[in-house]
Amino acid sequence: MFNLLEHPVQPADLPGELAGQQQHIDRQFRRTLSAAGEERHAAFGELAWLIAVHETIEEEVIHPITRHLDPAEHLAEHLLDEERRISEALDDMVRVDAAANLGEVDGLAVLHQMLTTHIRRELREEFPRLRLAVAAGELQDLGDVVRVAQARAVAESPVRPGVPQASLQVRDVLRPTWQQVSA
């Protein structure tokens, strides 16, 4: 079985920051899968928020760079399609959780497998390309932007919002900063 914790993380740059987030998501998945009742509900709320924030950051920052680096290969579009399917599965699980039926582990396990497959692809295909094509200093700056955006989103909402609100909140924080860096 693929274990994200086996992969080295360089938390200073953008790919390293995102890999660190992926590891955090994987740990939270494991906590959610092993919990029950109200503990599972709370763990899943945190998990859904983490996934939404992570995927929003990728959509706003990393995939546009990937698309720009190699538009003919369509890697960014394939990753965005995977993320759309993950978001749909996550939305389904949020509805199940809202109906107080998160006792079913099958849906969570499927979502975990989808996300693990997607993460594997990013670690294998997308992140190495970024490190080869983008200057280390720029990747460092982008990692800083992502950390600041995520920290501000957390600070502005100490109680985790729902998935759509998390995405909107991170976009609102990330876009102005990202536009300043990319200008």
Rank of each mutant, 00 (worst) to 15 (best):
182 S>E: 13
45 G>P: 05
67 R>T: 07
18 L>T: 08
96 V>G: 01
178 W>Q: 03
177 T>E: 14
31 R>S: 00
176 P>K: 10
65 I>A: 10
83 E>F: 10
73 E>S: 09
145 V>I: 07
63 H>R: 04
51 I>A: 01
122 E>V: 01
26 D>I: 02
22 Q>A: 12
28 Q>F: 01
20 G>E: 06
31 R>T: 05
134 V>D: 08
39 E>G: 01
84 R>N: 11
149 A>M: 05
112 H>E: 08
122 E>Q: 01
180 Q>I: 15
16 G>F: 08
163 V>S: 02
94 V>H: 00
163 V>E: 04
154 V>K: 13
179 Q>L: 13
18 L>K: 05
60 E>M: 14
163 V>H: 03
62 I>G: 15
150 Q>W: 13
147 R>L: 02
72 A>K: 11
24 H>C: 02
66 T>C: 13
151 A>G: 11
107 G>P: 08
81 D>Y: 13
104 E>L: 12
178 W>V: 08
4 L>W: 12
5 L>I: 07
52 A>F: 05
75 L>W: 07
100 A>T: 11
94 V>F: 04
72 A>G: 15
93 M>T: 02
129 R>D: 14
180 Q>K: 14
131 R>H: 04
135 A>C: 09
118 H>A: 02
57 I>Q: 09
55 E>R: 01
48 A>G: 03
112 H>L: 01
87 S>T: 07
174 L>P: 09
78 H>G: 13
97 D>A: 07
37 G>T: 00
14 L>G: 08
31 R>E: 13
28 Q>K: 11
122 E>S: 02
59 E>L: 03
157 S>K: 11
15 P>G: 09
176 P>F: 06
178 W>K: 09
89 A>T: 03
167 S>H: 07
115 L>G: 09
142 L>R: 02
84 R>Q: 13
53 V>H: 08
100 A>D: 14
158 P>G: 06
177 T>R: 15
71 P>W: 04
140 Q>A: 12
82 E>D: 12
7 H>P: 00
143 G>T: 06
69 L>F: 08
